[in-house]
């Protein structure tokens, strides 16, 4: 009963496949070009969705290369749901395994960053924690407390200068990427996601807090990585960026 769907699917994303049988123009004559409208629609829609999802990848590869890559990806990974806002989650693994681009090691992390930015854009809203909420907590209680992040907050670990690569391609006049490892924090103060570079110790602190470690334990973990780790600029940033939502002290 659903044979027309099988035949359409096989031929839609693969121009080498024969056009399904039993398709005609209005006068009953067989037609190839009319089926090609659907082939073109699907391919163009998926390429356009990938262009929207991965602007930095597109800049890094160049439009022509990106448009060549996109149909390869679309054939291997057609969307798994009608929520096109999530299309492309397989891109990092695809890039890691795509032989012609394997030598550009940072591409999968760039794709991960772009996916995280999109996820942050569509994440649930939350009421942020204020500096007053923190100031009202006794220092000892604070160090024993746990913090929660807003749903939009993401962290993308990377051994590459990931933030610099992002900024160099997205901001006019930004300096060239330096040779440092940068994990990236994404916040969403109101509606627009903002990436921030993190030192390895800052990334360790955030990952520990995200995993439910109290502030004291997170502090120890960060100091073990970098004896000069200073929490205050990071905490100020997180408060300004409305990245924190709740403070849970042990007595809660």
């Amino acid at each position: 009963m659903n044979s027309h769907e099988h035949m359409f699917r096989a031929a839609l994303l693969d121009p080498a496949q024969a056009v399904p049988e039993g398709l005609t123009d209005g006068a009953g004559a067989p037609t190839t070009k009319r089926f090609d409208v659907y082939r073109n629609n699907v391919t163009v829609a998926l390429i356009e969705a990938l262009r929207t999802a991965f602007p930095v990848l597109r800049k890094l590869l160049g439009d022509a290369n990106f448009d060549q890559l996109a149909p390869h990806f679309a054939r291997a990974h057609p969307p798994a749901s009608p929520l096109m806002m999530h299309y492309g989650v397989d891109m990092p693994e695809f890039l890691a395994g795509f032989t012609p681009l394997k030598h550009i090691g940072y591409l999968p992390d760039v794709a991960r960053l772009e996916l995280a930015i999109r996820q942050a854009y569509h994440a649930a809203d939350a009421i942020p924690l204020s500096a007053t909420d923190l100031a009202e907590t006794e220092p000892d209680a604070l160090m024993a407390a746990c913090l929660s992040f807003a749903p939009a907050v993401q962290i993308v670990p990377s051994p590459w200068p990931l933030f610099d690569i992002w900024r160099y391609n997205m901001q006019e006049g930004a300096e060239k990427p330096r040779n440092v490892a940068q994990s990236v924090l994404i916040t969403r103060p109101e509606f627009d996601p903002v990436p921030h570079p993190l030192t390895p110790a800052q990334a360790t602190w955030i990952s520990a807090i995200k995993a439910g470690t109290p502030l004291l334990g997170a502090q120890d973990a960060a100091l073990a990585q970098d004896p000069k780790f200073d929490l205050s600029p990071l905490l100020t940033l997180l408060l300004q960026q409305e990245a924190l939502t709740t403070l849970t002290t042990p007595k809660d």
């Binding site: 009963m1 829609a45 998926l46 969307p79």
Partner: peptide, 25 residues
């Protein structure tokens, strides 16, 4: 129109034949 085939979403409005079977469906 249809757009989903198995676990795949094809991101276009695709046509169907008009038969008794598709009508019921």
């Amino acid at each position: 129109a249809w757009s989903t085939h198995g676990a795949e979403f094809l991101d276009d409005l695709l046509p169907l034949p008009y038969t008794d079977a598709t009508l019921t469906c």
